[in-house]
């Protein structure tokens, strides 16, 4: 399995194929549409990450020391961002997640989605991923 850093590099390379912003977003929408939907039951308040403009759900499961994430959003662009985060973080150990540096969103120029006041849930989702890692890490030790 590739490292978190390697996956980020892959993503950057894929997006670099598109010069126009519309094309970058078209790709993001495509990714969003390919996200495996989570079940209606899992779209509960517990899995809901409070974002202002769009709703994001994140489900985590731990199997054999690795955390598997699934997620969805009601906005397709956010769903595309969710897809990227899942690709980077799902299947990792808590240690890998906690020691990672996430830079690909900045590098892609999608940082508008990260500003705390835009609060579309992406920043909150990254926080939640880390919180799961911390929690599972504690359970282990």
């Amino acid at each position: 399995m590739k490292t978190i850093e390697e996956v980020q590099q892959d993503i950057l390379e894929e997006f670099s194929l598109y010069e126009d912003w519309m094309d970058k977003y078209a790709y993001l929408i495509e990714l969003g549409n390919s996200v495996e939907p989570i079940s209606a039951v899992e779209k509960n308040d517990q899995n809901l990450i409070k974002g202002c403009q769009s709703r994001v759900w994140l489900v985590a499961e731990k199997k054999e020391g690795h955390i598997y994430f699934r997620g969805e959003s009601d906005a397709v662009i956010v769903k595309g961002l969710v897809a990227l985060l899942l690709r980077v973080f799902s299947g990792r150990t808590p240690g890998e997640i906690l020691h990672s540096q996430v830079h690909f969103i900045d590098d892609l120029g999608l940082t508008q989605h990260l500003s705390p006041t835009r609060s579309n849930g992406l920043l909150a989702m990254m926080k939640q991923i880390r919180l799961y890692a911390v929690a599972y890490d504690r359970l282990d030790n």
Binding site: M22, Q53, S54, D74, A75, I77, V78, N120
Partner: peptide
């Protein structure tokens, strides 16, 4: 069938500033 946030984000990329949200 389209979330207002998606519309606003995409319109922005075409140079058009609109507001989305509550």
């Amino acid at each position: 069938g389209i979330h207002p946030f998606d519309l606003g984000t995409m319109l922005d990329k075409t140079g058009i500033a609109v507001r989305t949200g509550h």
